[in-house]
């Protein structure tokens, strides 16, 4: 190691020290404990009892609801993450121009992210109401078709939740706007000199410059979607109804740990989910070396 490398290592660790210390103090112990719990029968009240691989065996071979919950969660992630990403980026693009009332628009698109969910859930129940809800009334009135049963129908419950999640893009939009503001105007000027049109500018300047924020929103979107919990808990009462179609992974895990007192089993579930998310994230990070461009490099 050269002197320079040593200096970098020392400085790097010094700057990261707050996080390292916090990790060792507050996070490592709970994480290690949950690894241990996953190999035990642990009912929270008594000390855990060693159970070897029993929990994992049951997960894989003896619990259809586990697979159902995993499927539901993957379904939600696969649809909601890309859709939210495209949607929030589109809105950020629309809001990144000089238009009258810009501040108002930006605030409006951020609004659903700050209205307390207990307050907005009531509205949602009406919007998705199969008989007199907003969406089905519009479908009936303008297209003359009978809308689906949304949350009441096992086939439509997950799409309903994906649709709902699109309202919560405010945070991603703000981050995209911050990213867009960083694109140096000079790059657009250069592109214009080369005769680039609107699309070419977006494709060759905006998109590459935005890749760091796209990476961020993609990774955080995935981590959030895999652990999707609060909205479904509020909207369906956390029962997985109708017919287990909204039994999401985190919801099932929550029921296991706090309703049925099977903290060991829930910990095994958590670690399986952890492996899934970690694999997905690392794949994205590795691929990002090819598509993410940092202006500072």
């Amino acid at each position: 190691m050269t002197r320079r490398e040593r200096l970098h290592l020392r400085n790097g660790l010094l700057f990261a020290a707050p996080w390292v210390v916090g990790f060792l103090f507050f996070q490592l112990y709970p994480l290690l404990m949950s690894v241990y719990f996953s190999f035990t029968d642990y009912n929270v009240v008594h000390p855990p009892v060693w159970a070897g691989l029993d929990n994992y065996r049951e997960l894989f071979f003896d619990d259809p609801l586990f697979w159902k919950a995993l499927y539901n969660t993957l379904y939600f992630t696969v649809f909601s993450v890309p859709l939210s990403l495209v949607f929030s980026l589109s809105i950020a693009m629309l809001l990144n121009r000089k238009i009258p009332g810009m501040s108002v628009f930006r605030t409006v698109f951020f609004l659903p992210s700050i209205v307390p969910i207990v307050a907005s859930s009531v509205l949602w129940l009406w919007v998705l109401n199969p008989e007199s809800g907003l969406i089905n009334s519009l479908l009936q009135q303008f297209l003359g078709i009978q809308g689906p049963g949304w949350l009441a129908d096992a086939r439509w419950a997950k799409p309903s939740l994906v649709l709902m999640s699109l309202w919560g893009i405010g945070g991603a939009m703000v981050i995209f706007l911050a990213g867009l503001a960083e694109v140096p105007q000079t790059l657009y000027e250069v592109a214009e000199l080369d005769g680039a049109g609107r699309w070419a500018k977006f494709r060759n300047v905006t998109l590459p410059m935005l890749t760091p924020t796209i990476l961020f929103n993609l990774v955080m979107g995935m981590i959030g979607a895999f652990q999707y919990f609060t909205q479904v808990y509020v909207m369906t009462g956390g029962t997985g109804s109708p017919m287990d179609s909204t039994m999401f992974y985190a919801l099932y895990m929550y029921r296991m740990s706090f309703y049925y007192l099977r903290m060991g089993y829930a910990s095994a579930m958590a670690w399986m989910l952890f492996v899934v998310i970690l694999t997905a994230t690392i794949s994205v990070l590795i691929s990002s070396k090819r598509w993410v461009y940092y202006h500072g490099d």
């Binding site: 990790f23 996070q27 719990f37 985190a250 895990m253 829930a266 910990s267 958590a270 952890f274």
Partner: peptide, 12 residues
């Protein structure tokens, strides 16, 4: 650092 966000809070 990223991995610490992947552990669901329910079990920790």
């Amino acid at each position: 650092v990223l991995a610490t966000m992947m552990m669901p809070y329910q079990v920790t």
